[in-house]
């Protein structure tokens, strides 16, 4: 549990960070809150000869809510997400989900950018961002580009982001949908046995749109379009709910670990999804 030696860089602006990344290529990696990366380095599962600390880059921090759009800087901590009033009004699901991540100590350090860029299927923010249909902004040597959260994840720890790119911000539309983030875990500080994010909008007693995304039930976050579709047009009654859960379960592919075997995870996933839908509907 001792890292191997590394060079520590602490640029004060984005250009500086990009330069170090370009110079060292594969040998360099950015560090945000370090609460995923440092454990990997201590276990010597990640070998990072050049560590580029982003914490002095002021532009990467902060939350703005303007003209119907929420923009969150990559270096904004989970603690800040929880305590931002404007964000609570614009997307209360983030508050609910962030409170279920780890413990206060981890949340003081861990950032939203690190959480979504990491690519660990256990991270809660990626599924949430897919549910919100968020857009990630990546800045690299060739300029700036946008990638949809729903298209960002390829496999465990494999994302659309190129090695030389830095994720700078995350944006999505303000939402007043009914929401829920439901998570089952063994204890504080554990990743999900199963977790589900749901947003539902309602008009005249019917679902007009629904978005259902899941965490740690596959090697990538899973947005179940079929589950959403099964709810639209219904009054979220028992039959619709059952159809949505069945559809969602079609889209997941959990693996056995110390939390339990696949059969258990699928069963629990079904329960968690239906609870998330029910709670989101009750708030719609």
């Amino acid at each position: 549990m001792i890292t191997s030696a590394f060079e520590y860089h602490r640029p004060s602006n984005l250009a500086g960070a990009l330069t170090v990344l370009e110079e060292h290529g594969d040998d360099a990696r950015v560090i945000a809150g370090g609460h995923s990366l440092i454990p990997m380095m201590k276990l010597r599962m990640a070998d990072v000869p050049h560590l580029v600390d982003l914490q002095d880059i002021a532009d990467l921090k902060g939350i703005t809510v303007e003209v119907g759009t929420v923009t969150i800087g990559a270096m904004t901590t989970q603690h800040d997400l929880i305590n931002n009033k404007a964000l609570l009004a614009a997307a209360p699901i983030i508050h609910e989900a962030a409170l279920q991540i780890a413990d206060p100590q981890v949340r003081y350090m861990g950032t939203i950018g690190g959480n979504v860029a990491n690519g660990d299927p256990g991270n809660d923010m990626p599924g949430l961002m897919q549910c919100l249909d968020a857009t990630f902004t990546l800045v690299g040597p060739d300029g700036t580009r946008s990638v949809k959260a729903r298209e960002f994840y390829e496999a465990a720890y494999m994302t659309e982001r190129e090695d030389g790119e830095i994720l700078t911000q995350i944006s999505f539309s303000v939402t007043n949908s009914g929401f829920a983030y439901e998570k089952q875990k063994r204890k504080i500080g554990d990743y999900a046995t199963a977790a589900c994010a749901v947003l539902i909008t309602k008009e005249d007693g019917k679902v007009t749109s629904a978005s259902v995304a899941m965490t740690n039930l596959s090697d990538v976050p899973v947005l179940s379009e079929a589950a959403g579709a099964a709810l639209v047009g219904t009054s979220c009654d028992a039959i619709a709910m059952k159809a949505a859960v069945a559809a969602a379960l079609q889209d997941i592919d959990p693996t056995e670990d110390n939390r339990g075997p696949v059969e258990f995870k699928i069963h629990v996933a079904g329960i968690i999804i239906s609870r998330a839908i029910a709670r989101a509907w009750s708030r719609a």
Binding site: D103, R186, K187, I188, G189, D190, Y191, N258
Partner: peptide
């Protein structure tokens, strides 16, 4: 050994 870290080895906190 499948439980060699505190992620899997259960040490309760005030929460539990």
């Amino acid at each position: 050994c499948k439980t060699a870290t505190l992620m899997d080895f259960f040490l309760p906190t005030a929460w539990e």
